[in-house]
């Protein structure tokens, strides 16, 4: 998700949608997705939401970006920031040799006209930056390679 609080955008698959939630008295909210309006009731905690929509209840789990990234990284390479989709490098706030903490933004990319940042999953040192600002990459490309020590 991106955008200012009054004009959020949702990137889902390859599409971007304008989304807005209007809370109503009585607990049934209006959820707007582009021009469509859905009546729903939502309750939950930060990580798990229960949503009543059109007579059914759905459970939507929220994965923290750090956690999701860490998980994705664990699956492939514990210390690599991989591209979640094809796009362009917008900014590289780190340089080779920099020490980063968990949660630090290591690369900002643009995909489908939406910018997003990828963050370090744990404390590490930047060892490789294969792409320069302005270059394109494919989905799954390693944008930033990290290591726990320089010797790695």
């Amino acid at each position: 998700m991106a955008g200012r609080p009054d004009a959020r955008m949702l990137l889902l698959g390859d599409e971007v949608y304008r989304i807005k939630l209007t809370e109503k008295a009585g607990g049934v909210d209006d959820m707007q997705v582009d021009e469509a309006v859905f009546n729903l009731v939502i309750a939950g905690h930060e990580r798990l939401f229960f949503i009543h929509l059109a007579g059914e209840v759905y459970e939507v789990a929220v994965l923290d970006p750090l956690e999701a990234h860490a998980r994705a990284a664990e699956r492939h390479d514990a210390l690599a920031a991989a591209a979640p989709m094809p796009g362009t490098i917008v900014a590289l706030p780190v340089a080779i040799g920099d020490a980063v903490e968990a949660g630090d933004v290591v690369v900002i990319i643009e995909s489908m006209k939406l910018e997003m940042s990828l963050r370090a999953g744990s404390a590490a040192i930047v060892t490789q930056l294969p792409y320069e600002v302005g270059t394109n990459f494919e989905k799954g490309a390693i944008l930033v390679q990290l290591a726990t020590t320089l010797a790695d």
């Binding site: 998700m1 609080p5 989304i19 959820m31 997705v33 939401f49 949503i51």
Partner: peptide, 24 residues
């Protein structure tokens, strides 16, 4: 269409997601 509404609603209700969107 319902999936978009569901994901969108959860995103807008999630403080963490909204904070992250605003923090950058």
């Amino acid at each position: 269409a319902a999936v978009r509404a569901l994901v969108g609603a959860a995103a807008l209700k999630s403080r963490g997601v909204c904070d992250a969107a605003d923090a950058v």
